[in-house]
């Protein structure tokens, strides 16, 4: 297997800071519906990759596969040089145990389109849960970090409010803070502004800009906000039919698309 070799050539794992992501020949189908086809993709540590593409092209699926919410049919995924779904065994790979997956998974954070905040906890409790339960932090420490994170997303005053009391934009900012509290080395954002009213989109994008500026996480974003993609992305990927059909600097892809399907998609988006 060539995978065991790639570990050594791929960036070595320092354990902290941004981590790279590598997909190798990842396939995923739902029944007869093939969603990812032999996907190969390398994301460097600290890189900000924006994924665009038509509906149903598999953008969400690739993020869900990275978060282990969906298991790929074949292929390998590596986070910071460590295999996510496999464990090295000699120079072969074996399907990973739940323990191994959980260890690698702790490097990844995901923000969902529909927030998925825990409705029975306050904003602060939402943020404190994982640091306390997963990382074993003391309550005080978790609460201090939690307040700082809330402040960072401009919601310190809402610490004691439950999701039911918050607006969509506020909910999404809490969800981002919750994800940040685990100090993930890779962050996944799935259309985090799509469920928001237009006037609330700005506040969430501002938070994303802040995270990008700090630059200690790798970011994979799926979005339909082309202007934002242009501003944020180090690299823009055009997805169609479960494959990357075009990739490059955002300005290049957006202004001079080469692939006809990209041209059609961007034309449709602009016309809208």
């Amino acid at each position: 297997m060539s995978e065991s070799k790639t570990i050594s050539t791929f960036e070595s794992d320092s354990g902290t800071g941004a981590a790279g992501v590598r997909f190798h020949r990842v396939n995923k189908a739902f029944g007869t519906n093939v969603v990812l086809r032999d996907l190969d993709l390398d994301v460097a540590p600290g890189e900000r990759v924006v994924i665009i593409g038509p509906s149903g092209s598999g953008k969400t699926t690739i993020l869900r596969v990275t978060m282990t919410l969906e298991r790929p049919d074949s292929g390998t995924v590596q986070i910071g040089g460590r295999h996510l779904y496999h464990e090295p065994h000699g120079d072969k790979l074996r399907p990973a145990s739940e323990k191994h997956m959980s260890k690698v998974r702790s490097d990844i954070g995901m923000v969902f389109q529909h927030f998925n905040l825990f409705p029975h906890m306050t904003a602060l409790e939402n943020i404190m849960l994982a640091p306390m339960k997963v990382h074993g932090k003391a309550r005080d420490e978790a609460s201090d970090t939690g307040m700082e994170l809330l402040n960072k997303v401009g919601l310190a005053h809402a610490a004691n409010q439950t999701p039911g009391q918050l607006s969509g934009g506020q909910k999404q900012r809490v969800a981002i803070a919750r994800s940040l509290a685990c100090e993930p080395r890779v962050m996944l954002f799935d259309e985090v502004t799509s469920a928001l009213d237009p006037e609330l989109v700005g506040e969430v994008l501002n938070v994303l800009r802040d995270i990008a500026q700090e630059g200690n996480t790798t970011m994979l974003l799926v979005t339909h906000e082309m202007a934002f993609a242009r501003e944020m992305a180090d690299r823009l990927l055009m997805f169609d039919n479960g494959q990357v059909i075009e990739s490059g600097r955002p300005a290049d892809v957006l202004d001079h698309p080469q692939n006809p399907r990209t041209q059609a998609f961007l034309g449709a988006v602009k016309a809208h």
């Binding site: 960072k152 401009g154 005053h157 004691n160």
Partner: peptide, 25 residues
């Protein structure tokens, strides 16, 4: 599920109260 009310600046921890908030909506 009900939650509390909005905190006033005085109720926030000191180091946060004085820092400028990162982003606001």
């Amino acid at each position: 599920y009900e939650g509390g009310r909005t905190l006033t600046p005085d109720e926030l921890p000191a180091h946060i109260r004085h820092a400028t908030p990162g982003v606001t909506g």
